[in-house]
Design a protein around this nucleic acid. Structure first.
Lengths: 158, 158
DNA sequence: TTAATTTATCTTGATATCAAGATAAATATT
DNA sequence: AATATTTATCTTGATATCAAGATAAATTAA
C-alpha cells in the first residue's frame, strides 16, 4: 500500500492521497483476511458462501427456519443468487426446504441435522481462527482497532 | 454487526466472539466502501477493475508500459483474468498492446492518450471522493483509524 | 367479487473470476 | 547443437454473481 501511494505521489503530487491510503488499507486487510478464513471453512468442506448461509440460519436460533427472502435480504445478495445457493446446499443435504403453511408463495429453509452439526463445528473453529489471527496484535492495539472500526462503520452506514 | 454478534452470543455462549466482531467490521467496511467508490468510476464510464488496471499503468510512470505478467502479479489476479481485461480495454482503445522487442513471448501494455486522460481525470475525482467519505470522521479519529489499520495490515502480511 | 397491485421466488442471459492445461519463446543443461 | 526446463501468455470449462424479467400467490381497491 505504501508503495502504491509513493508511486502516485511521484506521478500526481497535486492529489491528496490520505484517504486513498486509509481506504486502501481497509480493502487490503479485507482481501488478506479472506483466504485465512476460507482455510478453516475448507476443513469442513465448506466455502465462504456456504458457511455464510448455514451460519445465518444457525444463529437465527429457534428451529433455524428462515425464508429465502429473509436470507438474501440480510445477506446483501440478490434473490437469484440465493436460489442458486439453496439448490446446492439442498443437494448436499445441509438444508431442506419446507412449504410455508402461512404463505404458499414462500418456503422455509431449515438446517438438516447434518447441516446443523457441520456449521456448529465450523463456527467453533472459525472463532478460534479469528482469535488467532488477531492475537498477533497486543490487546491495547486490538482495542484501538476495534474502536476505530466502530467509528468508521458508523460513518459509512450513515 | 452488533446484531450478528448478539445472535451468536445467544445461541453459542461458549464462543469467544471478539475476533468475529472486529473482523466482521473490517469486511463490512470494505463492502460498504465498494459502491461508494464505484459511483465515481461510473461517472467516467469505468468499473472498478477497469480503473484498477488503468491506474496501475498510470502510476507506474514512465511511458506507462507494463507487461501483462507484471500487471496480474501486482494486482493479485490470475493470468486468464488479465487476458480478459486486456481484450476489453483494448477494444475500448484505452490501452494498446505493443510487441516487446526484448522478449517475443511477452507484450507491453500501454495507456493510449485517451486512456491516460481518462484515468487521470478519474483518479482526481476518486481521491476527492475518498477524502469526502472519510471527512465524516474528525481528524483525530481518522488518525487513530489509519494507525490501527497499519498495525493490522502488518500483522496480516507477516 | 373481480381486477389491480404487491410480494416471494425462480429463470434467463450476461459478466467476472479462477484453476488447469495449452502454446510458444527463452534459457539452461548435456 | 539438441534437449529439457522455465517463463509469459492465452484458452477452456466451471462457478458465482447480478439485473431484469417471468410466474404465481397474497393483498388491496373498486
Amino acid at each position: 500500500m505504501d508503495n502504491i501511494i509513493a508511486q502516485w505521489r511521484a506521478e500526481r503530487p497535486d492529489l491528496n492521497l490520505d484517504g486513498m491510503a486509509t481506504i486502501g488499507r481497509v480493502k487490503r486487510c479485507a482481501a488478506l483476511l479472506q483466504p485465512k478464513l476460507e482455510k478453516v471453512f475448507k476443513e469442513y468442506d465448506l466455502n465462504f458462501w456456504e458457511f455464510d448461509v448455514l451460519a445465518t440460519l444457525r444463529r437465527s436460533g429457534g428451529d433455524c427456519c428462515l425464508s429465502p427472502t429473509e436470507l438474501f435480504s440480510t445477506m446483501m445478495i440478490t434473490s437469484g443468487t440465493m436460489t442458486h445457493r439453496m439448490k446446492q446446499l439442498e443437494s448436499r443435504e445441509l438444508v431442506e426446504r419446507l412449504p410455508n403453511p402461512q404463505d404458499a408463495r414462500s418456503m422455509l429453509v431449515k438446517l438438516t441435522d447434518e447441516g446443523f452439526a457441520k456449521v456448529d463445528a465450523a463456527v467453533t473453529a472459525h472463532t478460534i481462527n479469528e482469535q488467532q489471527i488477531l492475537a498477533k496484535l497486543p490487546p491495547e492495539k486490538l482495542a484501538a482497532l476495534d474502536e476505530a472500526l466502530v467509528d468508521l462503520l458508523a460513518a459509512l452506514e450513515a
